[in-house]
Design a binder for these strands. Sequence first.
DNA 1: CGCAGATGCTTCGAAGTCGAAGCACCCGCT
DNA 2: AGCGGGTGCTTCGACTTCGAAGCATCTGCG
Lengths: 180, 180
Amino acid sequence: MTRPPRDTGADGAPALDPQQLGAYFALMEAVSLLQHRVEQQLRAEGDISYVQFQLLARLADAPGQLTMTQLADGVVYSRSGLTYQAGLLETAGLITRVPSPDDERATLVTITEDGQALVGRVLPGHIDVVHRLLFAPLARDDLHHLGDIMTRVRDHMRAQPPRSAAPRKRNPGRDSPPPA
Amino acid sequence: MTRPPRDTGADGAPALDPQQLGAYFALMEAVSLLQHRVEQQLRAEGDISYVQFQLLARLADAPGQLTMTQLADGVVYSRSGLTYQAGLLETAGLITRVPSPDDERATLVTITEDGQALVGRVLPGHIDVVHRLLFAPLARDDLHHLGDIMTRVRDHMRAQPPRSAAPRKRNPGRDSPPPA
DNA sequence: CGCAGATGCTTCGAAGTCGAAGCACCCGCT
DNA sequence: AGCGGGTGCTTCGACTTCGAAGCATCTGCG
């Protein structure tokens, strides 16, 4: 941090230097490509989407029962999206949904044996793709750096309040809604 | 590369070691979060999606005219998706589409002044978000590493033939297409 | 020249995602 | 106990994306 935090150009546009730009673009495109390939892989071997795989994998790792909200966390940005996917997975017989005895509102999701079997069937292929596309061109040090860097970035983003992007809010919480 | 290329476990599932897993998950989640925030930003300041922004930015950088296919490259995975977006952008007055004089099939896309103005208006905010979320927690060295690593990964993926994911093809290249 | 295959784009239908609205249930306060 | 706000999930409508099919044009080869 020996330089000013913002390199604001003369025209008012804060410029990213070429190195930053390159890193940003490479990052976004690489992940996009990786995701696309992984999706093809999962579709071909298990006829599921990436989202569905993530949900099943999460359930397979978990003790056995998760609420919808817990399950959605980090996978999908809307609750309704999860409801949709859970409906598909339940119809396919890969998960079951039962109302929670403790909290009648909550729905507990459990992975079925078929679901576990499916995860077991597609996981090797998934890992293989990630290995070949992401890790193959990386040396041991690169891997370490990448993990370190992205972990820091992710945690930084998680901590960031979601409203930070808003340029100018008069008074947060005083939207003056004009009903009646 | 002092270890065997595949760490195949006893149960047939090739395992990623914890370091690899962590790097992979952190990478995917961080990019997902970043993309989500950027999208909010663009929607708030310019009422456009990330895809639309990418298309406009590409046009703003290009000499002035690109064919649909050139424009789509790297942004969208289907041609029809581009047609849809181009339709929206054209309706919004941000681009124009004219048939190419050289090749009647091709459509040349040009960014309008409004389109350029819009890019100019949202770009600073975009850069600001990327700066705050992605680069803020990174030191100079990190940035260098990240750029280097992701560039290598991206180029590796681009070079990879798309069929590599298929687990067991009888004879690669002998799909035996049965027409006639 | 003429035709077959390749190429560029669009149209169409299916699928997935999100946000807003709605419903049912839980908790804290009086 | 009763009630008001909060929480968990679902339903609904709008939007976006993709793949397949279709149409028009170009190119290479006889």
